[in-house]
Amino acid sequence: MSTTFKNISALVGGLLAAACLQACGKISATDPADTVVASLPQAAMTNYAENCSACHGANGVNGAARQLADANYLASVGRDALINITTNGVPGGFCPGSGPASLAHWNPKQVAEFVDGMLDAWGKNGVALSIPWSVKLAPAGNASNGQAVYAATCQSCHGAPGATVPSASGSVTDPNYLRLITNQGLRSAILFGRPERGMPGWSGPFPHQAADRKLSSQEISDVVVFLRSTASQKQ
């Protein structure tokens, strides 16, 4: 009997020691504010590091979501709209916003400080585009015009809709992609491009096109409508 107990005790003791060793080796806590480098003022930076950098990248650049360290983008969207987006997030998109109603619970003063910090650090010398940024102010689009514009300026990188060979920069007519991105997201991507990834904005240059080929507000609306028409919207 007592040998059984001794054996069991040895076994339990061994397991316990192993668990403790495992635990010591496994604990690693990182505060995002320690690892995220952002050139924002201190309070805004902490807020950015804890709430935004996951998607928008460590210094407002190189994230999966839109680059925020983009002076022209910040100037075009403007302070009021930036405050609105920061507070309420992007309807239909992933950005949850950080305002009083969100889980980040920033009060309006914190939101304003954050937006001003962002404009100050990343928005210097930004030029507001003459083309309306918001889909609410954009002209209505035409799908067949959009198809022609797409074929001329987008297709060489993103491939023809329904193509069987993967394109160089990946499909933008993938129905799953189109279900996850809003029309505003598409318009912003076309208008401002993704500079950190080499995608040109409205002013090009586009491959195989004249160097001064630029997209108009109407053409951007047309492309958005065309892209939307390639996939039936299930959601």
Binding site: A29, T30, D31, P32, T35, V36, A49, E50, N51, C52, S53, A54, C55, G57, A58, N62, G63, A64, A65, F94, P96, L103, H158, P166, S169, G170, S171, V172, D174, N176, Y177, L180, I181
Partner: peptide, 30 residues
């Protein structure tokens, strides 16, 4: 859990990804 919410996706995992894959990176974070 809010200690982890804002670790950026490593930049090398976003290079040369398609638009859908980039959305997937957002889903993973979100």
């Amino acid at each position: 859990m809010d200690a982890w919410t804002s670790l950026p996706t490593p930049v090398k995992y976003l290079v040369g990804r398609t638009p859908l894959e980039m959305q997937g990176a957002l889903v993973l974070q979100h």
